[in-house]
Design a protein around this nucleic acid. Structure first.
Lengths: 165, 165
DNA sequence: AAAAATACAAAAAAATATTTTGCATTTTGT
DNA sequence: ACAAAATGCAAAATATTTTTTTGTATTTTT
């Protein structure tokens, strides 16, 4: 099984590989027998292909997709953060802090004014204040932060489009 | 197997359920025997719990996590869209359009000036222009759009934090 | 053109998933 | 409080899948 951070080997995929990836993206717990059937192989070469895709870092893992509301994560919020200056270790400290905060699901360094964009799932307003507090405490050079509170999730997908060939 | 859109039943989870969810979130293809072992049950009740979590809409599915770069999705971009007005069907048309564009992974209606925030994975600048074109063509009332091109992905996680109990 | 590597399938062995059975505990209705 | 029903669990039996082994055809390399 692929754990994490395998060195990505760029290779060209044939139609079968693409089918495998497309199916596993949707049905991560499908059996190899069924998968093999669907892509028109016997189980052995099918499994070999999957194992190779894992080893090559193409498939990085498998995850159950849990309904956030079931766990009381009722709020989705994006926070845009501008830094007024960057001290040499600001970036390091920021990364470390972000890694520590599990409700921060994504954090990206974006172009423009060297800003960060954060995505967080939280349960309520009090945790939202906590989030902002964490951000402001951890980052000394925060110029300002702008929050986008999600009113409606129009689309949420983790499926990369994969062409037939 | 849980397909999609099961009616979510809110229940309280015990320690075992939480362990199951935590493990399946990280290792979506773990066997029931191993999972049962880890949470301290025999396979039968363990599988029953998983099946129930699926049926209750807590687990919405299982997905292979594919490295975007392996599929040549080298760009991650967020686009913020402000609408100058909302015609009655603008929302409908927008949703339909978003559903049609597979490289738009997320789209959220956010608070503030009734804006949208879109997350898209694309391969290059030409596809970025295509994306902007699609957005502007589909949405008649777009006041302006602001793009955040991701320079570095500091954190990308899909794991909701789940407390021990 | 031979040797090595690759891709596949079929069959066998090992492991896992699933069903069945039964017991103990908890919950529900009276 | 008591019986009936429901729930949660484990053990065993069965069905299915995973994984290994073996062999063959095709492609690639030397």
């Amino acid at each position: 099984m692929a754990t994490h951070h395998n060195p990505l080997k760029k290779r060209k995929f044939d139609r079968i590989d693409r089918n495998i990836l497309r199916i596993l993206q949707r049905e991560g717990r499908i059996s190899y027998t069924e998968l093999a059937d669907r892509v028109g192989l016997s189980t052995t070469p099918c499994m070999e292909r999957v194992k190779r895709l894992e080893k090559d870092g193409v498939i990085e893992g498998y995850h159950a997709h849990i309904n956030p509301v079931a766990l009381d994560y009722n709020m989705l919020v994006f926070v845009e953060i501008s830094l007024s200056y960057q001290s040499p270790d600001a970036f390091e400290r920021f990364n470390a802090a972000v890694a520590q905060l599990p409700y921060i699901l994504e954090c990206h360094l974006v172009s423009g004014d060297a800003d960060y964009l954060i995505k967080a799932r939280i349960s309520d307003m009090s945790q939202y204040r906590e989030l902002l507090g964490d951000i402001l405490l951890t980052l000394p050079g925060v110029k300002n932060s702008k929050s986008y509170i999600v009113m409606e999730e129009v689309k949420e997908s983790h499926e990369l489009p994969i062409n037939e060939r």
